[in-house]
Design a protein around this nucleic acid. Structure first.
Length: 423
DNA sequence: TCTGGGGTCCTAGGACCC
DNA sequence: TCTGGGGTCCTAGGACCC
């Protein structure tokens, strides 16, 4: 029995979320900005029509924003995450297996369903249900492999005549669509790869599908060979119905203003480590390896560029914010060079252990702190409740370098105080 | 002046071992 | 002068994704 995958993808997700609570903006161009209000990361269809490109720095399109009255929002992840959850739980009601692939898309396993229902109608039903229950419009692509489902979804969004639902189970239809698409539209083929593929005369998705997969393997990689198989309807990438265990936890931010002093960098690192340690504890895990990186701005040719990262291995795995921060500070001491204008810093935790499975060494030099688990639990509980925020003093309270979010919308769905009011 | 953040997987090359 | 081959493990870096 051949597999059937559906890819459900929300249209212009962040921009759609913002519009949901602002009916006055229904037909207006809207863009959502990255952290620090730096780049455009989502565009409503009106903004796309104006030619606003994905990822473009905001300062480069100031004129267009003014001229066309484009509405800008800072990213409001609390809002997007909540709406995402609503969409995903609707999909979970409909399909036996759902892989939440990102905040705005999910793969569904529909294998075997073609025996009981018409697959296209089922896709249309999914779309109608999500539209009706959340107000978020989605596209649905259905195909025998994930890579083809991605392309079916792409077609659903590109061609209005499809009604945003495309069934790509038939080989003839697959090949007709592949011939229309550039090879760079294929999932897993990015900028570098497409350039190399063009040089070998592979321009369309169909060219790639018809390439010799052994040659692709030897000249490119096993990853691209899998893609060739998938384009030919051979499923190589399975649906992951269990959330894979994380290999690393990263917390990094660009600063709202440049940092020169070490003290300010220390505060930033303390803040990021506080957040990273919290994530680590929420996964019930311990980490043994801590990495810190700092760098100056990468774009200003007048600034001297400096970027560096260092890793330290702890004597024993821990999830105590204080131990992790102490390690991070040691690293920062080695990394920091005075005189640079730092633009970004971050911490990374790796080499994880299960909390209950780690066996302590009774002779280890610096034993685990007494009461660590209880203290961290108290901190996390307070921070998850409505009481407020508890954090290490090292994080500081006055942080002029914190990220810019000048166009933040209210947390309509996750804060009582921000609940929309209808008059 | 101002250019995001958080992930995964694969590969090449060096160190080391027998 | 002649100087093997095969294996593992680790890390840094590259490529991709949303």
């Amino acid at each position: 029995m051949s597999s059937i995958f559906a890819l459900v993808d929300c249209n212009n997700f962040y921009a759609s979320c913002e519009k949901l609570f602002r009916p006055d903006l229904k037909h207006r161009p809207v863009v959502v900005l990255s952290n620090n209000d730096g780049c455009v990361v989502a565009r409503s269809k009106e903004a796309k029509a104006l030619g606003i490109k994905m990822g473009v720095p905001v300062f480069q399109i100031r004129d267009q924003i003014e001229q066309h009255n484009i509405v800008c929002f800072s990213s409001n992840y609390a809002l997007y995450a909540d709406l995402s959850q609503r969409v995903m739980s609707l999909l979970e009601e409909e399909a036996p297996y759902v892989e939440i692939y990102s905040i705005d898309e999910a793969f569904l396993d529909l294998t075997g369903l073609d025996g009981c229902v018409d697959i296209l109608s089922f896709g249309q039903h999914l779309k109608a249900k999500v539209d009706q229950c959340t107000g978020i419009t989605v596209g649905v692509g259905i195909a025998p492999t994930k890579t083809l489902a991605k392309l079916a979804n792409h077609a659903a969004k590109t061609y209005p005549a499809t009604g945003s639902v495309v069934n790509l189970m038939e080989r003839d239809r697959q090949r007709r669509l592949l011939a229309l698409l550039d090879v760079s539209d294929v999932w897993g083929v990015g900028r570098r790869l497409s350039k190399r593929l063009y040089e070998r005369g592979i321009y369309t998705a169909l060219d790639l599908a018809d390439a010799n997969s052994k040659v692709i393997r030897s000249e490119f990689s096993v990853v691209l060979e899998r893609t060739v198989q998938e384009l030919n309807g051979v499923s190589c990438i399975a649906l992951e119905d269990a959330v894979p265990v994380k290999q690393q936890i990263v917390c990094s931010r660009s600063f709202g203003t440049r940092i020169i002093e070490k003290e300010a960098l220390k505060e930033a690192i303390a803040k990021y480590m506080g957040r990273a340690a919290e994530k680590l504890r929420s996964e019930q895990r311990l980490a043994r390896v801590v990495q810190v990186f700092i760098r100056t701005g990468a774009f200003n040719p007048n600034d001297t560029y400096y970027t560096n990262a260092l890793t330290i291995e702890l004597s024993h795995p821990t999830n105590d914010s204080r131990d992790l921060l102490k390690a991070a500070y040691e690293v920062l001491e080695k990394l920091y060079r005075p005189g640079y204008r730092y633009a970004k810093a971050g911490v990374m935790l790796t080499d994880f252990y299960e909390h209950h499975a780690y066996q302590q060494d009774m002779f280890q030099a610096d034993p685990v702190r007494k009461g660590s688990k209880a203290l961290m639990e108290v901190i996390d509980n307070i921070n998850h409740s409505r009481l407020g925020k508890v954090f290490l003093a090292a994080q500081g309270t006055s942080t002029p370098w914190s990220m810019k979010r000048e166009h933040l919308s209210p947390a309509y769905t996750t804060q009582w105080s921000d609940l929309p009011i209808v008059r």
